[in-house]
Amino acid sequence: MTRRPDESMTLLREVMERPLDPGYAAAAERRAQSPDGGTRRAAWVTVTVFLVAAAIGLVVTVAAVTLRAPQPAAAEARTLLETELADRERQADALGAEVDGLSDEVEALRSQTFDDQDPDVQAALLRDGVVSGSVAVEGGGLLLTLADASALAGAEIDTDSRVHDDDLQRVVNSLWYAGAEAISINGRRLTPLSAIRSAGQAILVDLQPVSSPYRITAVGDPTTMQTEFAKSPGASFILTLSSFGIQSSTTPQSSGLSVPADPSIQTFYAQPLDSNQDDADDTDADSTSTEPPTSDPESTP
C-alpha cells in the first residue's frame, strides 16, 4: 500500500480538496436507495425545515444589517459632538470678549478715579497689573519664533524634531532672565501662575493649546534683552534645537510689540477688603475692588 506524500497534511487536504459537505453525497445516496426516490417525507419534517430555515434567514439578515448599522450611528454621534464643541467654543470666545470689555471698563473707571485722587496708587496698580499680567502692554522687545521641523505634507514629523513644552520653558525662562517685563506665546500672556505643559503632542499654555510656529513676544528693553539673552542658556539651547531641525528666529524690535492681558486672572484666597478704609472713594470702590493690588499671590515671576 502506497502512502501519499502529503499524508501528514490531512487537515489542509481536507480543506482544499473536499469543500462540499459529504453529507450531501450521503443524503443523495440514501435517496437513491429508498423505494420512493426520497421525494416524500413526513409533514413535521417539512414544517421543521421551513421554520429552521426562516429562523436562520432572520438571524443572518439581522446580523448583516447590524454590521452595517454602527458606522452611521458613530458618525452621527461624532458630528453631534463636533457641533457641540464648536458651539461651546463660540460661547467661550463670546464670554472671553465680554471679560475683555468689562476689564477695559474697570480699567477706565479706575484710572478715572485715581488719576485725580491718588496718582501714586494708580501708578502702583498699573505696575502690579503689568507684573501680574492683568494689563495689556506694548512696546519694544524681542520677537522669538520656534517652529517644528518642516516635513512633507501628511508625513509624520519625528518627535525629536518637534518643539516640546520644556523647550519653550527654557527659552521663556531665559527671556525673563534677560529682562523681559511681559511675555506671551502665540498671544497668550504668561503670568506668574502660567504653566507651559504638554498633553500628548500638544503644548498647553495655561491649559489652552498652542501650535507651531510658536511666536514668543517679550516686551522689554530691546538692546539689553538681546545681549542678555545671547548670554543666557536659552540662546545656546536654541542652537542645540536647530541641530534637530527646529527652526528659530530672534528679532529685536524697538516698538510695536504688544502683549495682551490674561483674561482669566483670578484670586484663589484673597478677598477684597471692605471699602471703609478709603471713604472718599466709596462710590467707585466696588469697581476697583474686583482686582485689588494685594491679590497677587506672587508679584514677581
Binding site: 429562523a55 436562520i56 434567514g57
Partner: peptide, 18 residues
C-alpha cells in the same frame, strides 16, 4: 422549502430589524 423559509426569514429580518 428551505429556500422559501430562508427568504421569509430574511424579509422578516429586514422588516423587523430587532
Amino acid at each position: 422549502i428551505a429556500v422559501i423559509g430562508l427568504v421569509v426569514g430574511m424579509i422578516a429580518g429586514l422588516a423587523l430589524q430587532p
